[in-house]
């Protein structure tokens, strides 16, 4: 059994850098763009659970195998995706390598990326994140400085954090709002 610290280190160091590639892979093999984030989260969850019995040595291959199996299962259950596509995906082994290389940024690129991510947040959200990250103000201090409630600071912060993290991991960095209803049938609902 792998301990939680080792799992955390593995997840951050080896799985998360693949996020851009994984997202592309899902997007390409799934017709409903609104589902991509949910699917990715499910894939991460399954990848982590699976790694508990032993951290995989070939993370990339492992992650994409989990991803493929999950998409196939979901597709079969939901009957959203045609079975041709499922068949296509079954032969994915040879092609998953085409989905970009791992995101390897050096410190300067990371900084540039973080700044770019910050730039594209909506103004109010950006100001809250900036006060926190750059000036290091506490929630209370941020609220006082901007004359808004703590609750508002936290709302803006969580939104900004999620968008910025998405951007840091190779995504678009847009604020994501929840879809009205998830179009993926939950596995346990069937």
């Amino acid at each position: 059994m792998a301990d939680e610290r080792a799992l955390n280190a593995w997840f951050c160091r080896e799985v998360l850098p693949l996020e851009g590639a994984l997202t592309q892979f899902i997007r390409r093999n799934w017709r409903v763009p609104a589902d991509v984030v949910d699917l990715r989260q499910d894939i991460y969850e399954r990848a982590l659970s699976g790694a508990r019995s032993g951290i995989p040595t070939h993370t990339r291959h492992y992650l994409f195998t989990v991803a493929r199996n999950h998409l196939i299962n979901r597709a079969k259950r939901g009957q959203i995706v045609s079975f041709e596509l499922v068949a296509d995906m079954a032969s994915f082994d040879a092609e998953y390598d085409r989905f970009g290389t791992e995101r390897q940024l050096n410190a300067r690129e990371e900084l540039r990326r973080a700044q770019a991510g910050l730039e594209q947040l909506p103004p109010r959200c950006r100001e809250v994140v900036r006060l926190r990250k750059v000036e290091g103000l506490s929630t209370r201090e941020t609220a006082d400085r901007l004359g808004i409630s703590i609750n508002t600071v936290e709302k803006q912060m969580t939104q900004g954090m999620r968008a910025l993290v998405d951007f840091m991991l190779g995504g678009s960095g847009r604020i994501s709002r929840p879809s009205i209803r998830s179009r993926i049938p939950r596995g346990d609902a069937r």
């Binding site: 997840f11 951050c12 410190a107 973080a114 910025l164 998405d166 840091m168």
Partner: peptide, 19 residues
Amino acid sequence: AHKVAYWRLEHGWREADRI
């Protein structure tokens, strides 16, 4: 599911610490 979501945000958020 909670763990991966938390780890992901924690990790990405720290990468953004560079700013």
